[in-house]
């Protein structure tokens, strides 16, 4: 079920999708090198591995494996939400290759290196137009979810 009806806008454009269905997973916008096949996040026209020009746009998997994490005992910077006592930060390896550094959703004891993570959107605040300003983050995967 959707929890809010406000329109969602990205904190910064060009990095992730915002699905119309709030229960659907967002996806990160990446690149694939047409020469060597290496994948990247965020998008880039020039391959960092073989230096070929002309990477093609792709969307990346919404699931990956937690490589490392920490839990920060301070409120999230740039967030106006009061419910943040602290937050997780992690690096998630996507099956295509890129390692993504992002905020994690969950409590201090909810994470384990090697666990499967899933991308979701978090609302940082509302802007003057009444839209929800969102950023991507990862949460521990809940298997069996439709």
């Amino acid at each position: 079920m959707s929890e809010a009806s406000a329109e969602r806008v990205p904190v910064e454009a060009g990095f992730f999708t915002i699905p119309d269905d709030p229960s659907a997973s967002p996806q990160l916008l990446g690149s694939k090198c047409v020469e060597c096949g290496e994948y990247f996040f965020p998008r880039r026209p020039i391959c960092a591995r073989c230096l070929a020009h002309g990477c093609e746009d792709v969307t990346l998997s919404s699931r990956g494996t937690l490589f490392t994490y920490t839990y920060v005992h301070f409120p999230l910077m740039n967030s106006q939400r009061a419910d943040h006592g602290g937050y997780g930060v992690g690096q998630v390896d996507l099956p295509e290759g890129p390692r993504i550094q992002a905020v994690l959703s969950g409590g201090e004891n909810d994470f384990q290196i090697g666990m499967e993570m899933e991308l979701e959107l978090e609302t940082l605040r509302q802007n003057k137009q009444g839209q929800d300003v969102v950023i991507y983050r990862f949460r521990p995967s809940t298997d069996g979810e439709a």
Binding site: V11, T68, V89, Q91
Partner: peptide
């Protein structure tokens, strides 16, 4: 507003420590 600007710098080296 940016994706870069939300995480406390201390976190980055803590990620090394946890690994």
């Amino acid at each position: 507003d940016s994706i870069d600007n939300v995480i406390l710098p201390a976190a980055y080296f803590s990620l090394w420590g946890m690994r």
